[in-house]
């Protein structure tokens, strides 16, 4: 393996984490990402046994997850495998598809609530214009957040992932942290 030392998207040696009230934000720097696109007439694959989700959805199976990103397109997630050549594995698992390595294209931030879904919904309401009634666990979408394009994944009632452009990771983290901090602040 290379002797070069990687930096996280936030420019640190290791993943950043912070807690404000009941919300904890954590940079998921070990997440491997791959874009998958169907070619003309290619059958929909089931990479690593995972049935690919339909529009607006996210699905996980074992150590792999996927979200729909566009017609015939998905983003595959492999937690903890950023340092492996996941793109090559994915290409092998999806014969006849277009596969593009995306691990370093994005910065992923995981938000966890210690008090159920309410704080997650409150955070979302300040950041993304999505109807929470149509954004329950198992859904994912791309949308705008502070003038950035991000993927938002509702991994569970009390868990949200926000995946944005790697180069703007600092801005995205700042937006998430500022909002979480304000939500934790009592209102007079």
């Amino acid at each position: 393996m290379s002797d070069l030392k990687p930096l996280t998207a936030l420019g640190d040696a290791s993943a950043r984490t912070v807690t404000h009230g009941v919300l904890t934000l954590k940079e998921n720097n070990a997440l491997a990402l791959v874009s998958l696109a169907l070619r003309r007439d290619s059958p929909e694959p089931t990479p690593f046994g995972l049935g690919l989700p339909g529009p607006g959805l996210w699905a996980s199976s074992g150590s792999i997850a996927a979200l729909w990103t566009g017609p015939g397109q998905w983003l595959l997630e492999a937690p903890g495998r950023a340092e492996s050549d996941f793109a090559a594995e994915a290409a092998a698992a999806c014969p006849g598809c277009s596969v593009t390595e995306q691990t370093d294209g994005f910065a992923a931030f995981e938000v966890r609530s210690a008090a159920g879904e309410e704080p997650i919904l409150a955070l979302m309401a300040k950041l993304v214009n999505l109807d929470s009634a149509r954004f329950g666990p198992g859904t994912a979408t791309r949308t705008g957040l502070e003038h950035m394009s991000v993927f938002v994944i509702r991994r569970a009632a009390d868990r949200l992932a926000v995946i944005g452009m790697r180069s703007a990771a600092g801005t995205l983290w700042h937006a998430l942290e500022t909002t979480a901090a304000r939500l934790a602040e009592p209102r007079a």
Binding site: A37, L38, R40, S98, E101, D104, G105, M165, R166, S167
Partner: peptide, 10 residues
């Protein structure tokens, strides 16, 4: 038959 993916940041 063509697929496009932006990879600027990758």
């Amino acid at each position: 038959d063509v697929q496009l993916i932006s990879t600027t940041d990758a």
